[in-house]
Design a binder for these strands. Structure first.
Lengths: 353, 353
DNA sequence: CTGAAAGCGCTTACAG
DNA sequence: CTGAAAGCGCTTACAG
C-alpha cells in the first residue's frame, strides 16, 4: 500500500495543472491565493476520488513541523503522569498533534538524552516535568524557538511557561485538617530533593504546624528504591511512636507508607491518621478510605495544551505564562476526628487481617 | 540553534570531498564502501569537531524510516497499559526508537483514526491492543509491510504476531484456588464483550467450576461507566447473596467491585472472598490484602520488543510468532480459607467504618 | 489567476 | 577508492 502512493505531482499532472495550485488547494490557501473556484473544485474532486493523502514526511521535512509534541516525565507508569498523558493525548489529537513520550527515570543524564533526541526529531513543542539540574540543557537544546511548558515543578530563576498547583497551601490545608481533627504529633514524610513541588509542600506543612504551635516532624527519605523507602518509613514511625498522624508528600510515598504501617501493624484511622498528597482511585475503597489531596489532572492538561496552542500559533509574546491551579482535598476515613484512648475499640486491633 | 544547522553538504565542502563519502562514513558504511582510512578519519574528525547532527527529518523523508513505534491501547492511564508503556519505552529507546502513543477509548472509530494517522506518519512498527472489529482496518491501513505486534488480546482468524498471557488457565487457577479455600458459590464478574482475553478468562473460570461440580455464576457488565458498573455489581451481589467469593476479570472491575462491596458493607475476607485478575501495587496494602493474578509486564514488553526488532531487521519470515506467557498468582488475605459461620468474629462487622 | 522551478538535506545508483 | 548528480514529495518566491 505504501509503495503505490500518489504524489502531488501525480495529481497535478492528471489535472493538467501545477503542483503549486494543488498544494494551495490542499492546504486551504486557495482563497487567499486567488485560485478560481473551478480549479478548486477540480482539484478537490480528484483528491477525494483518488483518496490522495499528502506524504507527511515530505511535508515535515519541508516545513520543519512534525505535528508532534514531546512529553517527558519521570516515569510514565506513575498514575499522576499517565493520567496527565491521557488528557494531553485527547486534547493534542483534537488539534492534529500526536504525543511522543519518554521517561527520564528522574536522571539528569537520561533527561538530557531524551531532550536531545526529541529535539533532533523536531518535535513542535515540549511538555516536561523537568528533573533538577537540566535547566541549561533545556535552554541550549531547545534554543528558544520551540515552545516548552513545564509542569508539576518549577526551577527557580528559570523563566518558562508553567502549569503548577498550589503545593504550599494544599499541604497547609491538609495539615490543618489533621490539626482540626485533634491530632497533635503530625509528621510529614517527603523525599530528600530540591524539586520545588516537594519543598513547597514541606513549607506548607511547616507553616500550618508552626501556626498551631505544634512541633514539626519532617522525615526526608533518600529515595533509592521501594523496599528501602518502606524500611525507612517503618523505622521512622517506630522510633517516633508519639506520632499520631502523617502527611505523605506524594503518591508513591503514600504507598510506601501504607506498606510500612501494615508491617508495623498500625491501624490507620485508629492508631494513626494519614493524608496522602495525590489521590488514587483505590484510596476511596481502602478500609479505611484514605484522605487525599487530589490534583486536577484534566485541568492541568487543559492549561498545558491551551498555553501550547497559543505558543504554537503566536509565539511573539515573550511574557511567560504561569498557571497555578488549586487542588481538592478529599476527606475520607483515614483522618477522622481523633479518638481518645477509651474510645478506641480494642477489638478493632484484631481485625483487618 | 535550529536555524544555523549544518548540512551534510557543508561538511563535504569544508573537507573538499563529496556528500556521498560523508554520508557513508556517518552511517557506518565506510568500510563496506571501501572508503580509505585517511578520509574516514578526516570526516569523523570534522563531524565531531563541529558536532554535526544529520537532519532526522530529511533522513526519514529519504529512507521512509522514522525510528518511531506506534503504541495503541484502550487507555494509556490504565495501569496495565502504562506499565507496558514504561517497559516498551525503555527497550525501544535502547534501540534508538521512540514511542508515539494514543488511546482508542475502546472505540472502533477512534481506533481506526489512530491507525490511519500513525500510518501516515510512517511509524516503523505498531504495538496494539486492538479493539474488536478493526481487523480489516489494520490489514488495509498497514498493508502488510509494517510490522505489527498485537498484545493483551487476539482476534480469532486474524493472523499476526502476538504476545499474550494464558488467560484461560490463569482464571482456572484463580478459581481453583478459591475452591481449594473452601468456597462454594463463586461468581465471575466480567464485561459484555467479544474480546478474546475476557472470553478466555470466563472459559477458565467455568472449566474449574464445572470440574469441581459447582454452579457457575457469571455476571457480564455492559460497561458504560464507572458508576453504572459499580451499581450493577452491587445489585448483582445483593440479589445473589449466596455468593461467598468473586473473581473479577480485570483490574477496573476489581476496583468497581471494591467500591460495590464497600457500599454493601461486605467485609472482604470475612463475608466474601475475592481474587482480582490483574494485580495492582495497592492490593498488597489493602486491609485485607487482595489476592491477584499478576501479569508479567516486563516480560510482555520484552517479548513484544524482541519480536519487533526481529521483524524490523528481517521481515522475510512470514510465519507468525505467538508468545503466550504465564501469570503469577499472588495469594493474599482476601482469599483465605473460608471461615465457618461461628469462626467469624461478630465485632468485625462494626469495624472499617 | 496560474505555473515553472528552486530547494529543503539526505541516500544511493552509477560512472570512472 | 571517490564524486557528480538524480531524486524522494513537498512548499513557495517569483514571474507573467
Amino acid at each position: 500500500m505504501r509503495e503505490k502512493r500518489l504524489s502531488i505531482t501525480d495529481i497535478a499532472r492528471q489535472l493538467g495543472t501545477s503542483t503549486t495550485t494543488v498544494s494551495f488547494v490542499i492546504n486551504g490557501k486557495a482563497r487567499e491565493k486567488n485560485i478560481s473556484q473551478v480549479l478548486i473544485d477540480r482539484v478537490e474532486h480528484l483528491v477525494s476520488e483518488l483518496n490522495y493523502q499528502p506524504n507527511a514526511l515530505a511535508k515535515s521535512f519541508r516545513t520543519g513541523k512534525t505535528m508532534t509534541i514531546g512529553f517527558i516525565v519521570d516515569e510514565i507508569s506513575q498514575p499522576f503522569f499517565s493520567g496527565i498523558a491521557k488528557y494531553i493525548d485527547e486534547k493534542a489529537s483534537a488539534h492534529g498533534y500526536n504525543i511522543l513520550f519518554s521517561s527520564t527515570k528522574n536522571s539528569k543524564k537520561r533527561g538530557g538524552e531524551v531532550l536531545q533526541v526529541f529535539n533532533e526529531r523536531h518535535v513542535d513543542a515540549f511538555i516536561i516535568a523537568l528533573p533538577n539540574g537540566l535547566e541549561n540543557e533545556v535552554k541550549e537544546v531547545i534554543g528558544g524557538d520551540v515552545p516548552v511548558v513545564l509542569f508539576d515543578r518549577y526551577i527557580s530563576g528559570f523563566e518558562s511557561d508553567y502549569v503548577l498547583i498550589d503545593n504550599e497551601s494544599s499541604a497547609a490545608e491538609a495539615t490543618q485538617h489533621l490539626i482540626d481533627s485533634g491530632y497533635k504529633e503530625i509528621a510529614f514524610v517527603t523525599i530528600e530533593t530540591d524539586q520545588s513541588q516537594m519543598l513547597d509542600r514541606t513549607k506548607g506543612y511547616e507553616r500550618a504546624i508552626v501556626i498551631a504551635g505544634l512541633n514539626p516532624i519532617v522525615k526526608r527519605i533518600n529515595y533509592e528504591g521501594k523496599p528501602e523507602s518502606v524500611a525507612e518509613i517503618a523505622a521512622f514511625l517506630q522510633q517516633n511512636n508519639q506520632i499520631d498522624a502523617v502527611v505523605f508528600a506524594c503518591n508513591y510515598l503514600s504507598m510506601d507508607g501504607l506498606d510500612a504501617m501494615r508491617q508495623l501493624n498500625l491501624k490507620i484511622g485508629e492508631n494513626i491518621a494519614m493524608v496522602s498528597f495525590d489521590d488514587l482511585e483505590v484510596f476511596k475503597y481502602f478500609m479505611p478510605s484514605i484522605t487525599a489531596i487530589a490534583q486536577p489532572l484534566e485541568e492541568i492538561a487543559d492549561q498545558i495544551m491551551e498555553i501550547l496552542m497559543y505558543r504554537l500559533t503566536n509565539n511573539t509574546n515573550k511574557n511567560k505564562i504561569k498557571a497555578v491551579l488549586t487542588t481538592q482535598m478529599e476527606i475520607r476515613d483515614s483522618s477522622q476526628f481523633k479518638k481518645t484512648s477509651d474510645e478506641v475499640q480494642p477489638e478493632a486491633l484484631t481485625v483487618g487481617k
